[in-house]
Design a binder for these strands. Structure first.
Lengths: 246, 246
DNA sequence: AGGAAAAGTTAACCTGGATCAAGACGATTA
DNA sequence: TAATCGTCTTGATCCAGGTTAACTTTTCCT
C-alpha cells in the first residue's frame, strides 16, 4: 500500500485500517519522477497534493543570487504538499532530490474526506503540523548551532525519520544527497560542509558518503547536534527503537 | 470583539460573520498577562489554546547554554498555539514579550467546531499553515541573509502583519521589543544587533527604538532584506495598503 | 573504453559577526 | 535624590566559516 508509511508511529494519531484504506482510495495516480526535477513552483494554483512513496523530495526558496535555502527534506511516507490543500498556492518550490515515486491525491478527494471523515481530516491537519514542528527544529539549527552541530542535528533527524519509515536500522541508511544539498540545508557552503564531514569522520561520529550515511556513535552525534527528537512526536511504542541504539 | 483581527484579509479564507461569532462564543475567558511571562512550557499537555488580542507573544526553544532561539513572534489576531489542539503538547515554550491580553479557547469548543462547522475548521487549519509559512520565511532569513538583511526582513514582515492588524500605518508601529529580543529572533548577538540598527539608521532605512519602529524607506528596506510578502497570503484587496506606501 | 560532467577535496586568504570588556543612559524604586 | 538594574553603545580582538581557485575522484554517457 502506498500509504503504509504515512503517519506511522506518531503520538496520538493512530490511523485506523479503514482510514488508511480511504486514503489509499483517494490516490488518483502513482508516478515515478527522475532526480532533480521540480514538481511545484511557488505560486502555482494546486488541485492535488503529493504523497511521497519512495525517494527524497525537498522544498526550497531561491534567494536573489539564485542560491537555494531548503526548508524541508521529505522522506517516504510524508504528505509533501498537503498544506497546499487549504492554502491553494505555495510560497516555495517542491522538487525531487533523488529519483522518486509519488502518489497524487486530488483535492476533491480531500474535500470529501473533510466532509465525511472529520477524524481522518484531523489527522491530516496533524500531519501538516508535524512539518511545522520540523521547521521549528530547523530554525533552532540555523539560529543556534555551529556548522558541525547543524550537520549532526540534520543527520540525527533524518536517521530518526527513516527509522520510523523502516528505512534505517538506526545506524545506516541509504541517502542520495550531495554535499551541496547538505550545504543548502544547513545554510553553509559546499566547501565548508566538506570540512564538517571530515571532522565528523575524524571524531568517529559518522560517515557521510553520497548514497550512504553511517552513524558511528548515535549518542555523541545527538549530543554534538543538541538533537532531542521530542519534536517528531514519536509514539512511545516506537521511541524505544531509536533510543536504545548505541 | 476579541476575534476581530483573526484571519483578516487573507487570501481565500474570508470568515463569515456567523463563523466569527461562533469563535467568539468559544472563548472561555480573557486574561491580561504581564510582560516576560511564560504561558506554555514545552511538553505540557494542553486543553486550551490562546488567541492573542493585544500585545506581543513569542515561541522559542532554549539551547544548551540557555540562549533562546525564537521561532515566532505573534501579533494581535494570531491564534498563537492553535497547533496545540491537534498536537496536544508543544515542542517549544510560549511567552509574552510585552504585557498582553489573551483569549482562552478550550479544546472542547474546538472539537465542537470541528464536528459541526467543517468550513470553519478548515479555516483554523489554514491559520496554522500560515504560521508554518512564516516559519519558512524565517528559515530563509537565517539561512541566506546577512545580519542587516535579517533585521530588515524581520521588520518588513512585522510591519506587514501589523498593517493587516490595523496596528501600523505602513511606516511606524509601536513595538515593545529590546535589541536582545531582536538578537534572539535573528540568530545574532545583542551587540551585533546594535551595530545593525545603527547601520540601518545611517542608511536612512529605518529607526528602531524600544517601543517604536519607524520605517523610513519601505522599498529599500524590503530590497535590503529580500522581503517578498507573498508568504503572508494577503488578500488582493488588502495588498494595496501595503504596496503603495512609499 | 574513453571522455565529459558532476561531485568531492584541499589550501590560502579574507571577513562578518562573536566575544570580551567598559561605560553611558534611562527607567524604576527607596 | 540617590541607587540600582536593565538596556544600549562602543571599541578591541579573535575565529568560524566564506571565497576563490586548483586539483582529484566518481559517475555517467556514447
Amino acid at each position: 500500500m502506498f500509504t503504509d508509511r504515512f503517519l506511522r508511529d506518531r503520538r496520538g494519531v493512530r490511523l485506523e485500517t479503514a482510514e488508511r484504506a480511504r486514503l489509499e482510495e483517494a490516490i488518483e495516480e502513482v508516478r515515478v519522477v527522475e532526480a532533480r526535477k521540480r514538481l511545484v513552483r511557488a505560486g502555482d494554483v494546486l488541485s492535488e497534493s503529493t504523497l511521497l512513496v519512495e525517494g527524497f523530495l525537498c522544498r526550497y526558496i531561491d534567494d536573489r543570487r539564485g542560491l537555494r535555502q531548503l526548508m524541508a527534506v521529505h522522506v517516504p511516507g510524508d504528505f509533501v504538499d498537503l498544506h497546499g490543500f487549504p492554502l491553494k498556492t505555495l510560497d516555495h518550490d517542491v522538487a525531487t532530490l533523488t529519483a522518486a515515486t509519488v502518489a497524487i491525491v486530488p483535492h476533491t478527494a480531500l474535500q470529501q474526506i473533510e466532509r465525511e471523515a472529520p477524524d481522518l481530516a484531523r489527522k491530516l491537519w496533524y500531519a501538516t503540523l508535524l512539518d511545522a514542528a520540523i521547521h521549528r527544529a530547523w530554525l533552532f539549527r540555523l539560529g543556534r548551532l555551529d556548522s558541525i552541530g547543524r550537520v549532526a542535528h540534520f543527520l540525527c533527524e533524518t536517521n530518526a525519520r527513516l527509522v520510523l519509515a523502516g528505512l534505517s536500522d538506526g545506524r545506516r541508511f541509504a541517502f542520495g544527497l550531495t554535499q551541496y544539498d547538505l550545504a543548502e540545508i544547513c545554510g553553509l557552503t559546499n566547501v565548508h560542509v566538506n570540512r564538517v564531514i571530515r571532522a565528523l569522520r575524524e571524531e568517529r561520529l559518522c560517515l557521510f558518503r553520497s548514497s550512504l550515511v553511517e552513524i558511528l556513535d548515535p549518542r555523541r552525534l545527538a549530543e554534538r547536534g543538541q538533537f532531542d527528537p521530542t519534536y517528531l512526536y514519536i509514539d512511545d511504542s516506537a521511541a524505544g527503537a531509536l533510543a536504545a541504539k548505541d
